[in-house]
């Protein structure tokens, strides 16, 4: 009885069709592409999806509360470019890494405070801060690249390190979203904010916290970005906002708030990485990636709408 219930519930899970799609795609690619089913290839995919993936975890939390964060890419870039000023001066990692993360936290907090205080829609606040942060980077760094990055910074972006960090965060935040008061309360905020407020949920505080986390995740993605590319550029993180929203939405999170899972977001990021790798190896023009991502978003949302209609 109990196992049957479990099975039933498993079938209702939103992620299953997505997972099935991924498996089919892997089978398809491994038949059509020689050398697709190799450890190296999957290691490469895992490295590629990590930076946007980590940003997407924060984005998931933000979307679950019914908000949006368009400033993630700008925060990433700001944190590493300003942090980069310390890096090229040769300060130790023990200072620079916390500093970069702190910058992310501060910028995320600014977003949260503006949203809560001014009661301006999140899309406007983060559109504004995106501009502010991006402009500030160019003013401070004068658009220069920083290439003299000590080798110590590369470790975090090489081998399996990024992916391991990504997976650890996934596990922690999947658990947080499902099992902790914070996680359940942000679902309540996104689903019915007034009810959450009446029930004594610290709505404003949790909203700020969600943007703060999103800021930290962006900064962390930036640290890994340095490790992978070996240099710091002002244009870092451009397009991350849209890519991470895509991954999150493909993963089944509603942009209206109230529902979403971290596992779904992981699957969404993984699917996007898989397709990129596949079309690269098929020697198909890499520009197809954008077309496919767009179609995936439309498909995923139409699928959700259909499911919802059937439920009602």
């Amino acid at each position: 009885m109990r196992t049957k219930n479990r099975l039933q519930r498993l079938i209702q899970v939103r992620e299953l069709p997505l997972l099935a799609f991924i498996v089919l795609l892997i089978i398809f690619f491994s038949i059509t592409i020689k050398g697709f089913m190799t450890v190296q290839n999957f290691a490469m995919i895992s490295r590629q999806i990590t930076t946007v993936g980590i940003v997407s975890i924060g984005m998931t939390l933000v979307l679950v509360t019914g908000g949006i964060d368009l400033s993630v890419g700008a925060i990433l870039s700001f944190a590493i470019n300003i942090g980069g000023l310390l890096i090229i001066r040769g300060l130790p990692i023990a200072i620079t890494y916390p500093f970069i993360l702190l910058l992310g936290a501060i910028m995320g907090t600014i977003n949260g405070l503006l949203i809560v205080w001014l009661k301006v829609p999140a899309i406007i606040v983060t559109l504004g801060t995106m501009n502010i942060f991006r402009g500030a980077i160019m003013i401070i760094t004068r658009g220069k690249y920083m290439t003299q990055i000590p080798d110590g910074y590369l470790w975090i972006g090489s081998g399996y390190t990024p992916f391991v960090i990504f997976v650890i965060l996934l596990v922690i935040f999947e658990f947080t979203l499902r099992r902790t008061r914070f996680g359940r309360n942000i679902v309540a905020i996104g689903s019915n904010e007034q009810s959450a407020l009446y029930s004594g949920v610290p709505v404003n505080w949790f909203k700020i916290l969600v943007y703060l986390l999103s800021g930290i995740f962006s900064a962390l993605a930036g640290i890994i970005f340095i490790g992978r590319s070996g240099f710091i550029q002002p244009q870092a993180g451009i397009g991350y906002e849209m890519n991470s929203i895509a991954a999150v939405v493909i993963g089944g999170t509603s942009i209206y708030g109230g529902s979403g899972t971290i596992i779904g977001t992981f699957l969404g990021s993984f699917l996007m990485g898989l397709i990129l790798a596949g079309i690269t190896m098929l020697a198909v023009n890499a520009y197809w990636q954008g077309v496919i991502n767009g179609l995936l978003i439309i498909l995923a949302i139409s699928f959700d709408t259909l499911r919802q209609m059937r439920r009602e």
Partner: peptide, 29 residues
């Protein structure tokens, strides 16, 4: 309240205890 103020995306127990969830250590419900 007159207007339903339930949270549709939470389960029955979570709704009843919303904002006053019994906690274990670390904010875990």
């Amino acid at each position: 309240f007159q207007e339903l103020s339930v949270v549709k995306d939470l389960n029955v127990a979570e709704n009843i205890f919303l904002g006053r969830e019994p906690l274990k250590r670390g904010g875990i419900i």
